[in-house]
């Protein structure tokens, strides 16, 4: 336990370096994957591919923000995909009735309310976040089914603005970046440079210590899950513009990849370690991997198996490296 470490092994030194600079190995991995893709299919990596990859990765990264922030406290938000879907579905079905701005406002309010319910359960009733968010996701998706029966006749319309945001391009880059860049900047700033962000890490590292320092954890957790709901709602809006067809399972396929993106990006599910920067790269890594497996024309079953195995291998390796020297 002395500060002076006498002659660490080279592997331990690499581990220490990576623990201090967790983004470096992730970026190396991402570059390596892109290089591998170029070798497997020469010419595939071009500006069009780049724009497309970013377009697909943005909603994943945004949904993974919900996971990253909750995971920092040792929690998780398994309702994020459902909330995004509800937000998208409500926007699409309400736009013909009340107009786009009101529809979006309602959709985001619903997302916020679900987040508040999660927060109430986790922060005040102390239900485990996994169970709480899974429960609200089930209830909310049930409500969505009921709601769908009532609106089946009204038809759907996707606001033009969302289509522009989801599929349009400016200077060859997807317009989604107009939303994502400010969003990511804000999240990273929040996690590093605000009291709230610090408290997320504090709760995840040692809730008892945070309590002794005067932190009322329920305030933090309630705000956190409400924020997570709002982010999921926002993601639903963007995703609606990307996919352009509202459905009852729109963003559900993103649920588990959003967790995977956060974990691959170096956020610990036990809390206290990680950040959104790593998650963005994690989302890019998952997207590139997906492309690679598709291009190799492996059948769906094999693709899933490989995808799962690669995620596990990357995570295990990453944890092993960064835990070295402890």
């Amino acid at each position: 336990m002395t500060a002076l470490n006498v002659g660490p092994t080279p592997l331990a030194r690499i581990g220490r370096f990576m623990a201090d600079n967790p983004l470096v190995p992730l970026i190396l991995l991402l570059v390596g994957l892109v290089a591998l893709l170029q070798i497997l299919q020469p010419g595939v990596v071009n500006s069009r591919w780049l724009a497309n990859t970013i377009k697909v990765a943005i909603p994943l990264a945004m949904l993974a923000a919900c996971q990253t922030l909750t995971m920092l406290t040792g929690g998780i938000d398994l309702s994020a995909g459902t909330v995004a879907t509800i937000s998208a579905f409500a926007t699409a079905t309400l736009t013909p009735l009340v107009g786009a701005p009101a529809a979006i406002l309602i959709a985001l309010s619903v997302a916020l309310v679900i987040g508040l319910v999660n927060g109430f359960g986790v922060a005040i009733c102390r239900v485990h976040p996994l169970i709480m968010t899974l429960g609200t996701a089930l209830i909310a998706s049930g409500c969505l089914l009921v709601y769908q029966r009532y609106v089946i006749a009204t038809g759907t319309k996707i606001p033009d603005f969302l289509v522009w945001l989801g599929t349009g391009r400016t200077l060859g880059l997807p317009n989604g970046l107009f939303l994502f860049l400010p969003f990511a900047t804000l999240v990273i700033w929040m996690q590093r440079r605000t009291g709230f962000g610090r408290l997320l890490y504090a709760l995840g590292s040692n809730e008892a210590a945070a309590r002794l320092s005067g932190v009322r954890s329920w305030q933090v957790l309630l705000s956190l899950y409400a924020l997570s709901g709002a982010i999921a709602g926002l993601t639903g809006l963007l995703y609606l513009g990307v996919v352009k067809t509202p459905s009852l399972s729109l963003a559900l396929p993103l649920d588990l990849p959003s967790v995977a993106a956060a974990v691959v990006g170096g956020t610990s599910i036990f809390g206290g370690r990680g950040g959104f920067g790593g998650t963005i790269i994690g989302a890019l890594i998952l997207t590139v991997l997906g492309t690679m497996l598709t291009l190799m024309q492996i059948p769906e079953g094999g693709r899933r198996i490989l995808f799962g195995l690669i995620i596990l291998a990357v995570t295990a390796l990453y944890i092993r490296l960064t835990e070295q020297g402890r």
Partner: peptide, 13 residues
């Protein structure tokens, strides 16, 4: 940590 614990200290550090 104690400098940030209260609700009013949650903003920019």
């Amino acid at each position: 940590l104690p400098l940030l614990a209260r609700l009013r200290d949650w903003g920019a550090i």
